[in-house]
Computed example of a mutant assay.
Amino acid sequence: MDEKNTGMSGWGLIIFLILLFMFMGGGFGNFFGNRGNCCGVTPCEVEKQEIIDSARTQYLIEQTARQTQEMTNAGINALGNKVDYYQIQGLRDKVNEVTNENLQLKNRIYNDNKFNQLERQNEGMFTALDQKISQIACNIPQRPPYWGAGFINCGTPIPPGYAYNTNCNSCTNC
Results as ranks from 00 to 15, higher is better:
Gln89Phe: 05
Thr99Leu: 04
Val95Gln: 10
Gln49Trp: 08
Lys82Leu: 05
Lys48Ser: 08
Leu103Glu: 15
Gly90Glu: 03
Glu47Gln: 13
Glu97Trp: 11
Glu50Trp: 00
Leu105His: 12
Thr42Leu: 00
Gln87Glu: 12
Ile76Glu: 04
Glu50Val: 05
Gln104Asn: 13
Ala65Ser: 13
Leu91Asn: 10
Gln58Thr: 15
Ile76Ala: 01
Tyr86Val: 03
Ile52Leu: 08
Ile88Trp: 14
Asp53Gln: 05
Ile52Gly: 01
Ile61Thr: 04
Thr64Gln: 10
Ile52Tyr: 13
Asn81Trp: 05
Gln49Cys: 04
Glu47Met: 11
Leu91Ser: 02
Gln67Pro: 01
Glu50Gln: 03
Val46Pro: 00
Val98Thr: 08
Val46Leu: 06
Ser54Phe: 05
Gln89Lys: 13
Ile76His: 01
Arg56Phe: 15
Glu70Leu: 05
Ala55Tyr: 00
Met71Trp: 11
Thr64Asp: 10
Lys94Cys: 03
Lys82Ala: 13
Leu103Gln: 08
Glu70Ile: 09
Asp53Met: 12
Cys44Asp: 11
Ile88Val: 10
Pro43Met: 14
Arg92Cys: 02
Gln63Glu: 14
Ile61Asn: 09
Gln63Tyr: 13
Arg66Ala: 15
Glu70Gly: 02
Glu101Lys: 06
Pro43Val: 04
Ile61Trp: 07
Ile61Ser: 05
